[in-house]
Amino acid sequence: MSGKAFLVDTTKCSGCRSCQVACKQWNNLPGEKTTFFAGPEYTNPAELSAITFNHVKFFPIDRSYPDKPLWTIMHKKCYHCEQANCLRACPVEAISKQNGWVVIDQSKCIGCGACENECIYKVPHVLGEDLKKYGSEQPLEKDKSYKCHACTVNKRKMPACAFHCPTGALTYGDRGMLLKKAKARVIQVSADYPHVMLYGEDQFGGLGVLTILKDLPEKYGLPLRPKPIDIKKAEAIRDTYHLLALFTFGLPSLKRVAYKISRSMVG
């Protein structure tokens, strides 16, 4: 790990989506064409994509505590796993750790979709069409995988999303210090949120994004004990894939099929 981390404190998030817009701005990402709201409540777009590196998820309100309805609003992006499935699965080593952050090098990416398949948090996405960056002639290339790079690419001292969060719900800093802060916060708000918990301390060997959740993690699609893909198995899948790849004629769509077959063959 880089020693740095993000802390997402949903007990402080006001859902202002500064984080979502700041990421688009600092990474020159185009806006997505949406209609109404694609996800629950105000969630838009419904999921992360190759041009949306973070988004704010608004969960349906839970009225089971009559005096204090529970409405969770959660900033979501790549969790930067210590044992990252995407990195382990990538057949061409396009994904690497930069200073502890999990970063995709698009110049090496062959668009096979392995990372997209193996990330249980549905983070990386292979872009389906050629696009231009917002306000620039630089391309965003079709058949390349994109996701949050922790602002390692745009060289900011403080990642844009964290810098622009007005409430302190999204902070960035020394991981050890954030862990301490998060644990104290969990105790502080436990009277208000009986099931409050900290997610990310141990999952996948420790996540680069720690999240204080108002309720049990399963409610938010975050498994408590996810299993990282086995390194040996990942190697076997990669070897099978390299064999099959000989027959894909460089076509990303076939590469994606090849990856899926390799995966099912290794089992």
Binding site: C16, Q20, V21, P30, K33, T34, T35, F37, N44, Y134
Partner: peptide, 26 residues
Amino acid sequence: RVVEHWQAGAMTRNLTWLTELVPDMF
């Protein structure tokens, strides 16, 4: 109002980063 749009919207309804979030009257 919602945070994504500014008053009568003339400044924000032209900006795709914001209309991605709240594209329509609701």
